[in-house]
Computed example of a mutant assay.
Amino acid sequence: MPAVFLYIVIALLTLGIGLLLYLVFGLKSKLEKPVDDTSLKVMMEWMKDIKSGTEATRESMQKSIDDSKEHINARLTKAAEYIGELKKEMGGLTQIGPDIRRLSETLASPKLRGNFGEEILENMLAQVLPRSGYQTQHRFSNGEVVDVAIVTGERLLPIDSKFSMENFRLMIEAKEEAAADNLRKAFLRDVKKRVDEVRKKYILPQEGTHDFALMFVPSEGVYQEVIQDVSTMDYARSKRVIPVGPNSLFVYLQSVLMSLRGLQINRVAQQILDLVSAIKQESDKFASILGTLTNHIKNAGNTMSSVNQDFGKLQQHIHSASELQLEDTKEEIPEKVGSPE
């Protein structure tokens, strides 16, 4: 865009200069002829107007060119800053390379890889559960130690981190399909062995655990490869082991805890029903006793009414007897009683 402005300015300047030369030479040729003063003055004024207009156009074009140059310089400065930042970022990437290599070397060691998975598991649980809600490195009586045991009421939910990486890494790096398929089968066999370990070591209902456990796979890529194999998932379910990954751990925990909470509510509801049943039995006993007492009171009332009636009759007889009087008689009682002549 600035180059176009420059061409326009050059074209206008060339046109102005050409017109000026034309006017000067034309005026010179006219001056050689006798002309009157009025025509000369008009011609000079007209040339002044053209000159001033040309100067104004040149200044305007120069200002546009300067503004364009400033705009271009600002853009170039910003581009230079971006390039500098990009160089810094590229330098950071070169520093990240050794860190990635060291991490890869760390994950190559089974023990260090296990510690890495345990650390991830503990950090994730610490974000959602209180410290009293789980135990780390819980030891059973058989000497086995599970990474985490979540406290769910009177029971423990074991979670152990398993990181089968060797054959998985080789499967990813394999360039031939047949080799990759064989390595995938070997990787899935490794996963089933980890399932057997969790089933044997950590599902111990006699020591207060639930009859199932979670197997935490710290790598989401490894976990996705596990759950996509139907036979492996069926095998894990048959062993009462549930594989979980970083993105699904919280979902499974929430489902398990809600299920356990439902079982707890059912137990409490059953206890309430048993209590209500006992109260009903006591209520029935009380109702029977109360009925018997009511009958006794009713019979006593009837007997009392009969007694009151008999007593009323007795009172009347007594009253009648109290009003009785002996009558006086004028017959003399003989002194002796003899036999008749």
Rank of each mutant, 00 (worst) to 15 (best):
G26D: 08
F116R: 14
V146Q: 07
L107R: 08
S219D: 11
E166P: 00
V24Q: 04
L157N: 09
P205Q: 07
E341V: 06
N247A: 12
S255D: 12
L23N: 11
G92K: 14
I17T: 12
Q315T: 12
K239G: 02
A178W: 05
G53K: 10
L13R: 02
S277A: 15
V226C: 10
H210N: 04
L15V: 12
L249D: 03
I100N: 11
A178H: 10
R58L: 14
D190A: 09
R267W: 01
L263F: 02
V337G: 05
L6Q: 11
R139D: 01
M43E: 07
S109F: 10
N142L: 04
T329Q: 04
I17A: 11
F25Q: 13
K193W: 06
M47I: 14
P158S: 02
S322E: 11
V146L: 07
S39F: 13
S248P: 03
V198E: 06
K69N: 09
A126W: 00
I96T: 13
I265E: 11
E207G: 01
I65E: 05
F250H: 03
K48D: 08
V4L: 07
T329M: 03
R189E: 10
D190I: 07
R75V: 12
S306Y: 03
N302Q: 07
L20P: 00
L293D: 02
V128T: 06
K298A: 13
I265K: 09
Q325S: 11
R189A: 07
L76I: 15
A179P: 00
P110Y: 11
A149C: 10
T294W: 02
I159D: 02
V146F: 00
L86T: 09
M47R: 10
T94Q: 15
L12T: 04
V198G: 04
L314N: 06
G208D: 06
K175I: 06
S68E: 08
A178P: 00
M215L: 15
A56C: 04
E332V: 08
T303R: 15
S339E: 09
A80Y: 02
Y252M: 13
S68D: 11
Y134N: 09
K192L: 13
R155M: 10
Q224P: 02
R184G: 04
M258K: 06
Q315I: 13
Y202C: 03
D99N: 07
R58P: 01
S161L: 05
L86F: 11
I333C: 08
D37V: 14
I272D: 11
R155F: 13
I318W: 12
N73F: 04
V307K: 09
V191Y: 06
R184E: 10
L13T: 08
S161K: 08
T14Q: 06
E220Q: 09
A178L: 13
A278M: 09
E85D: 05
S305E: 15
Y82N: 12
K193R: 11
D274R: 14
D49G: 07
F5R: 07
M47P: 01
E59Y: 14
I120S: 04
H71Y: 10
H210E: 10
R155C: 02
